[in-house]
């Protein structure tokens, strides 16, 4: 049983790394966004696993899962605003390349 909990944390690390890699190599904003979602989920998985790890008959805390819920709420809000921005970008130009959104540099 312990193996599963520890393995879950390893899995979370792997997923986080894959998400990071995706953010860095992709140019399409929607996919970058999805990678960020993947990273958030990795964090959620770690939280749930740690909660499972630390739960005991003496100390019945479920705060890890509650944090995970709150993260889902915030992720939902972020997706709403982020996708709205991407939609607005799509409306102004046909091609959307994250590398072309560099007005601050210009």
């Amino acid at each position: 049983m312990i193996d599963m909990v520890v393995n879950s944390v390893w899995l979370a690390g792997l997923m986080f790394a894959i998400g990071t890699l995706g953010v860095m190599i992709h140019r399409h904003p929607v996919i970058i966004f999805m990678c960020i979602e993947l990273m958030l989920n990795a964090a959620n998985l770690a939280l749930v696993a740690f909660n499972r790890h630390h739960f005991s008959p003496a100390w019945r805390t479920m705060d890890g899962q509650i944090y995970a819920f709150l993260i889902i709420v915030i992720a939902a809000a972020e997706v709403a605003v982020g996708l709205a921005i991407i939609v607005a970008l799509f409306k102004h130009r046909t091609r959307v390349d994250i590398d072309e959104i560099n007005f601050l540099k210009r």
Partner: peptide
């Protein structure tokens, strides 16, 4: 399966 799908997504 999850890891593979994550890699494929990227």
């Amino acid at each position: 399966v999850g890891s593979l799908s994550a890699v494929m997504m990227v």
